[in-house]
Amino acid sequence: MYVTFEKTRLPSLCAVTGGPGRFWIVPHAHRAVAAARREVRCALEAGGVGEGAADDALLVVSELTTNSIAHALPPVTLRVAVLDQEFIRIEVGDSGAPPPGRRQAGQPADEHGRGNAIVSTVASRTGELTQAGRVTRWAEVPLD
């Protein structure tokens, strides 16, 4: 199978063609999260996804991508696909070990530890797949 790389609007992400949905290789830098959100927003708008579902999907993209960049080893990959016109599936993969269970936020002012809870609230289903040294965390967000 051949993989074709496309130039994207943002030099910080590399879009890869092939497979369902859109797939990007995300640089291991926190600034890349904003670029990932912009790319996903454009892809969802082009696919006719409603604003509410797109906003929920972007929140999930932010949380999962941030966690991979902050807590795992590169490369970080991002795939977004609309499944059966019912769900937006977001998959973020990395080369790190799965985090040890869900972390609870400490005090109300604590800025960390809420990402998994946010994803679980917004998504109808979530999961994690470990395979060949890679960890892929995924979530499915219902379409409007």
Results as ranks from 00 to 15, higher is better:
G19I: 08
R89F: 04
Q131N: 06
T4L: 15
V26C: 04
L83E: 15
T136H: 07
A105E: 02
A53D: 07
T77M: 03
R89A: 13
V3S: 09
T121I: 01
R38L: 14
T65Q: 09
E111P: 06
I69D: 12
T4G: 06
V135M: 14
M1E: 04
S68V: 01
E111S: 13
A43Y: 13
R102T: 10
G115K: 00
G50H: 10
E111T: 08
V60F: 04
G101D: 13
T17D: 10
E86W: 05
H28Q: 12
T121E: 14
I118V: 15
A105H: 04
G133C: 07
S12D: 14
A123G: 00
T77R: 07
G113M: 02
Q107Y: 09
T8K: 03
D110K: 03
I69A: 12
G50E: 14
T126P: 04
P142K: 11
K7D: 07
V26S: 05
T65C: 15
E39K: 00
T77I: 01
E111Y: 07
A46F: 06
E51M: 09
T8H: 13
A57G: 11
Y2L: 11
T8C: 10
A97D: 10
S124P: 01
P20T: 05
I69H: 06
G48L: 06
H112G: 01
T8N: 12
V119R: 03
P142L: 05
F87D: 14
L59A: 14
A109C: 07
V3A: 10
A72V: 01
L58E: 09
N116Q: 14
G21D: 07
V3T: 15
A105P: 12
R125C: 08
V60M: 06
K7V: 13
L13N: 04
L58G: 05
A97V: 08
I69V: 13
T65N: 08
A139G: 10
A43P: 01
L143R: 02
A29S: 11
Q131W: 10
W24S: 03
E128M: 11
T17G: 05
P11Y: 00
Q131P: 00
P11D: 11
L83T: 11
E91D: 14
G48S: 00
G52L: 13
